[in-house]
Every structure is written in structure tokens, then in C-alpha cells.
């Protein structure tokens, strides 16, 4: 039977995709399978069954060590061709996007990455993604017979079944040596922040003159009971805050009750991450800054004057 094939290097994303896959397979009359490729994967299929996989393709190999995308793409191509996969649901992580593109090209398939919504409309599977740098949301259909869809993490909720059972298919893969060798891996200081779930979010941008001045932003955040997020510039270029805090197209998408943007111009790649906010407040000294167009309340002023006063007023004596 033709099937939906799920894969992500992150189990939790694979479970989200399987949960959505259960819904799609009913309507499309397809099977639901997952690929589990890596080292020491043997014992993990039962978890995949519990999220709805009817079949798990298991590929155990020492060559999986560094997640070299080309080898994963080769393995998935084989699984897709032999198992008759019509829809490949992958995770849109950095590795996942590269994998999706590679495997799509191998399969001669159309592919959509960074998908934020997926639904059946008529006979077609419609995927939503941001387009024009975040100005719009494009709804697209893949016209090729096979379809590769890379979905953003946390787009779907993972929910397990009461009882899930399935069949394990052991893959006998002959994989080439990776052409890219990993010589070192330097873990990033993982910070346990979750700006996506913040109810109140204070975001700071390039209007901040110096790293020391972050102090003032933290004080305001504390007074508001807020989490601190930032634009890409402050994290990626200046390194003042961790990348976990970037809000926007390549960062986190947030839905706080209150968003306060400080010294942020409001370029679309940032604001696409805050459209779900209930109330948007902007503080910027340039009255022409585009952020004012999407703000509920705007203050045209110097953040160095406004922020301390605001923090002061919000802090109980």
C-alpha cells in the first residue's frame, strides 16, 4: 500500500508528524510509516508505534554518527521508492531542510520547507508557509506524484495512542563514506529560555547602544514579569544575547498577551514572529519606523529615557 513516510532526527518532531499523519492517512487511504536511522535505534521502534507508525524502517549503521545529510537522503530515497511513499513528512530543522531538498531532488519531487500548516482541501494537500520575507503566507500544493514536506517543529501536537503496534522492517543499507568530515563540535551554551511560551515578551533591537545597557531591559522585563527576546542582530552579530532569544522568521514565533518592542525598526523578518501578539507596543525614536504600523500603542522617544521611567512606574515601591 502506498504510504506516508515520517522522518526527523529529533524523536519529538517525528512524533508530532506521526500524530498529524494519523489524521491524513485516514482521509487519503494511505499507510503510515516512519524511518528510524541512526546508532542504537533498535529499541526505539515501539515508541514510534505508540504514535501511530504502522511500520518502522530501521537502519542501524555506524555511519550515521555525524548526521551527514547525503547518506540520510540516500537511505530515505530507497525507503520511499521501495515502500511506495507518496508523502514524506520531515522536520524543518536546519538539517531537516537540507535533507528535504536533497531527497526531493533525488525523487524528482516537489518540496515545501518551513511549513506552518497542512490541510486537505478537495483532493489536494495544501501547505502554508511564509513568503515574501514574511510579508505574506503562501498556500501551496505540490504537483508531483511524490511530495516532500518539511514542517516546522511544534506545528502539530504529539499525542500517543492507547495501544500502538506495528511491524519493524530492517534495512540493509550500503552507505558511502561521508564526503564531509566533522572534526569538532562545540556545543552552544544551551540556555533554558522559551520565548515562544512567554505571556509577556520584551524584545530589544539595535537601538540599544551597548551591551551593558541590557541591564535596563532586564529591569523592565522583571517589572513586567516578562521574558526577554531580541532581533537577530543582537544575538547573531553582536552575541549579546543567546540565539534562543531571536524572534522572527529564522527565530521563534511568539503569541504573547503583550509584546513590547524597544529600539526595533520592525523589519518584516522580525515582525513575522510577533503577529500572534494580543497587544503590540513599540518604543522607537524614529516616527517613521515601520514597527509603528503594526503597533497598538506607539511611543516615539528615546529608549534611554522611556525604559527606565516605565520600569520605575511598574515596580511597586
Amino acid at each position: 500500500m502506498a504510504e506516508i513516510l515520517v522522518f526527523s532526527e529529533k524523536d519529538e518532531i517525528a512524533f508530532e508528524l506521526l500524530s498529524k499523519g494519523r489524521e491524513l492517512k485516514e482521509e487519503l487511504c494511505l499507510g503510515l510509516a516512519a524511518a528510524l536511522l541512526g546508532q542504537e535505534v533498535e529499541g526505539r521502534s515501539s515508541q514510534y508505534f505508540s504514535y501511530g507508525a504502522e511500520k518502522v524502517y530501521l537502519g542501524e549503521s555506524a555511519l550515521w554518527v555525524d548526521f551527514y545529510v547525503e547518506t540520510y537522503a540516500q537511505a530515505l530515497q530507497r525507503v520511499a521508492e521501495e515502500g511506495g511513499a507518496q508523502i514524506l513528512l520531515l522536520g524543518s530543522t536546519k538539517r531537516g531542510k537540507e535533507l528535504a531538498s536533497r531527497v526531493a531532488q533525488k525523487l524528482g519531487a516537489g518540496c515545501i520547507t518551513d511549513v506552518i500548516g497542512l490541510r486537505l482541501e478537495g483532493d489536494g494537500l495544501v501547505a502554508d508557509r511564509y513568503a515574501l520575507g514574511g510579508n505574506t503566507v503562501a498556500s501551496e500544493v505540490i504537483k508531483t506524484e511524490r511530495k516532500v514536506i518539511a514542517v516546522m517543529p511544534k506545528t502539530f501536537e504529539a499525542f500517543p495512542l492507547e495501544d500502538g503496534e506495528g511491524q519493524t522492517v530492517h534495512l540493509d543499507l550500503e552507505l558511502p563514506e561521508p564526503r564531509v568530515r566533522v572534526v569538532e563540535r562545540r556545543p552552544k551554551e544551551g540556555e533554558a529560555v522559551n520565548v515562544e511560551e512567554a505571556e509577556v515578551l520584551v524584545c530589544i533591537g539595535r537601538g540599544l547602544g551597548a551591551e551593558e545597557d541590557l541591564e535596563m531591559i532586564w529591569e523592565l522585563a522583571q517589572a513586567l514579569g516578562a521574558e526577554v527576546g531580541c532581533t537577530k542582530t543582537l544575538a547573531s552579530d553582536f552575541g549579546w544575547l543567546s540565539e534562543e532569544r531571536i524572534v522572527g522568521l529564522s527565530g521563534k514565533k511568539c503569541n504573547p498577551r503583550l509584546y513590547v518592542g524597544i529600539g526595533i525598526s520592525g523589519q518584516i523578518q522580525h515582525t513575522v514572529g510577533i503577529l500572534g501578539s494580543k497587544i503590540i507596543v513599540a518604543i522607537n525614536n524614529d516616527p517613521q519606523a515601520p514597527i509603528f504600523k503594526i503597533a497598538d500603542y506607539g511611543i516615539v522617544g528615546d529608549l534611554y529615557e522611556v525604559v527606565p521611567r516605565l520600569a520605575e512606574r511598574l515596580t511597586p515601591p
Binding site: A109, G110, C111, I112, E121, V126, A131, L132, N135, T136, V137, A138, S139, E140, V141, I142, K143, T144, L275, I280, F292, K293, I294, A295, D296, Y297, G298
Partner: peptide, 16 residues
């Protein structure tokens, strides 16, 4: 390989 069904700005009602 793709067909764009629609491409619209998300709805935003702000107080401004």
C-alpha cells in the same frame, strides 16, 4: 512542481 493557491498578508487589526 508547485502551485500557489493563494498568497496573502496575514490579517492584522491593530489600534495604531
Amino acid at each position: 512542481s508547485l502551485e500557489v493557491i493563494s498568497n496573502l498578508a496575514p490579517e492584522q487589526e491593530r489600534k495604531n
